[in-house]
Nucleic acid binder design. Sequence first.
DNA 1: ATTGAAAGAGTCTCAGT
DNA 2: ACTGAGACTCTTTCAAT
Lengths: 157, 157
Amino acid sequence: MATKLNLDKLDYQIIQEMMENAEISYADLGKKFFVSAGTIHVRIKKLQEAGVVKGTKLNVDLKQLGYDVIAFIGVYLEKSSLYDIVAEELRKIPQIVRLNYTTGNYSMFGEVVCKDITELRQILHDDLQKIKGIERTETFISLDESFGRNVQVYKTK
Amino acid sequence: MATKLNLDKLDYQIIQEMMENAEISYADLGKKFFVSAGTIHVRIKKLQEAGVVKGTKLNVDLKQLGYDVIAFIGVYLEKSSLYDIVAEELRKIPQIVRLNYTTGNYSMFGEVVCKDITELRQILHDDLQKIKGIERTETFISLDESFGRNVQVYKTK
DNA sequence: ATTGAAAGAGTCTCAGT
DNA sequence: ACTGAGACTCTTTCAAT
């Protein structure tokens, strides 16, 4: 953990804006928030050094790239102490893009992105069955994403 | 849907690289893949026009911004025809950052990002209880994220 | 801390291949 | 389609406030 954070309104405004659109220029950000491009630069540098801003990611259309199936998988473990071992095995399956250790029904909860249902079935039947320590899994296939958005760190209105 | 896609190795390489790090310069991308910066520029422009590349997003450290609690919520609906109405109500809760319509146990599946457990409890007890059409919900609090990564559109090795 | 201006680096265009 | 060079824009630094 870096030095203590002390973010002001402008910092939050910059983060909020760039979470949606990281390509915006410092000049345009400055115009929007009534400061100079130099000030924006200093703020972003500060946020990067503090580790609040970790980088930028490309936002791609998975459907157009041929990834038609998104599913969530709830995993029941035989013993919760097996978490780390099973997590390492699940990491080897590249279609699993996210894995969380959770409270509640499931010991762990994953998200899978696949080309098609055939690929999903292969993961569920072939790959997951081979992993020792998994008692069973439950799968929820996403039929539609209602919305996906960012956290609100600054309220616009 | 735009005109038919015909992506080659270079396109996939660029996407793979920029999904992790969208800040990399065209010159550096060119060096990495043995083409000129101009070629990279043309490819990225093509990908943007096709809609495959939708933009770039800031990657932030939610913990450092004070968002300590991530949870997943499975929603049981009284009738699945209520999906759209309930989705609109859930959209009004800004801490719900994602909502999917799913097969399986739950009708819909959401992800919540909160400052703390108190805020999560308010959402579960106050906000969700008010929404008509929700039979009940199940919550899975993330104790730890094992990994989070991008889809593999191009295999490096 | 913020600014404005200058230097440096990156993007974008285009003629040539 | 790719390249290299020039024009243009954006980032980065810095002296002044």
